[in-house]
Simulated assay, not measured.
Amino acid sequence: MDGIRTFPFPVERSVWGVGMQVGPMGGETAWPADVPLHRVHRIDFHIVMLFSGGPVRHMVDFAEYEATAGDLLWIRPGQVHRFAPTSGYRGTVLAMQPGFLPRATVEATGLYRYDLPPRLRPSDAQLEGLTASLTQLRREYEDTTTLPLSLHTAVLRHSLTAFLLRLAHLAASSAEAVRQQSDTTFTLFRDAVEKGFATNHSVSAYADALGYSRRTLVRAVRAATGQTPKGFIDKRVILEAKRLLAHTDMPIGRVGAAVGFPDAANFSKFFQQHTELTPAAFRAELR
């Protein structure tokens, strides 16, 4: 059976074949006609959608995000996503091919910060700045008469960088606000789980490594998320298992081993307890 399809950046649809596109949502710019928008798929490029209407519910990495006017969705290469079966997508969409911007700009703008949430909700002032910057980028993108291709591309890179720096600041400040609302104990636990979930599922082991009592860890995680530490760990393990089942053709036993279950039967039992589907059934539903 074929896996979930990954669609490449459609260079042939770009003005002058440059490594980016910007235009209205609903146009045939960022997605070729054969992309099954209402089905789970991946793209190997960046997408930023700035909404002027809504609401719509868009799935990214198996989580549903509701977006409405003034919201942004930032989908990074390789993330599984699916469009809602609605015509409510209104606004501007930006697509960018990896490699279009220099390395220093990629690092400065956090293009591959997969730890940040896809949905962003700017303040009125931030939205005004982002909208003006995106409008200028679109104006430069569509202007093919005043500059030769080499200068046109250089101007696009500068304009795109300006927009992405604003976007990166919004993403970082949004994440910082969340961090400030969370207890430091939870933040350290969350980071430790992100690094170790593939091999360590033990709450006590995390508590010992961080220097907290199990009771302290339980209080901190429950206050920040409403979950127990074990529930938090299991949720992260399930997400990674879903990604591997969806993104790859790895045998189910290897998927289980990759998330800390050397025994395939134990992995299948764990997965079914948390999703009400066997790993095989989950994979089959997506294909």
Rank of each mutant, 00 (worst) to 15 (best):
F197Q: 02
F197I: 02
A198W: 06
A198E: 02
T199W: 04
T199M: 03
T199Y: 12
T199G: 05
N200G: 05
N200M: 08
N200Q: 14
H201K: 09
H201Q: 13
S202Y: 03
S202V: 05
S202T: 10
S204C: 07
S204K: 15
A205K: 14
A205E: 13
A205I: 08
Y206L: 02
Y206W: 12
D208E: 04
D208R: 00
D208P: 01
A209P: 00
A209M: 05
L210D: 06
S213E: 13
S213G: 15
S213C: 10
R215T: 10
R215V: 14
T216A: 14
T216P: 00
L217T: 06
L217R: 13
V218P: 01
A220Y: 03
A220V: 06
V221W: 08
V221D: 03
V221R: 09
R222Q: 15
A223Q: 15
A223M: 08
A224T: 08
T225E: 10
T225A: 07
G226E: 01
G226S: 04
G226T: 02
G226C: 10
Q227M: 15
Q227S: 11
Q227E: 13
T228E: 14
T228C: 05
P229Y: 02
K230F: 09
K230I: 00
K230C: 01
K230M: 13
G231L: 08
F232V: 06
F232N: 05
I233T: 11
I233V: 14
D234H: 13
D234V: 09
K235N: 09
K235R: 14
K235E: 13
K235I: 01
R236F: 06
R236Q: 14
R236H: 08
V237Y: 06
V237F: 07
I238V: 15
I238P: 07
L239F: 08
L239H: 10
E240W: 10
K242T: 00
K242V: 00
K242M: 13
K242Y: 01
R243W: 03
R243T: 02
R243H: 13
R243Q: 08
L244H: 12
L244T: 08
L244E: 04
L244S: 09
L245C: 04
L245W: 12
L245T: 02
L245V: 06
L245M: 06
A246D: 04
A246R: 04
H247I: 01
D249M: 11
M250K: 02
P251N: 02
P251W: 06
I252P: 01
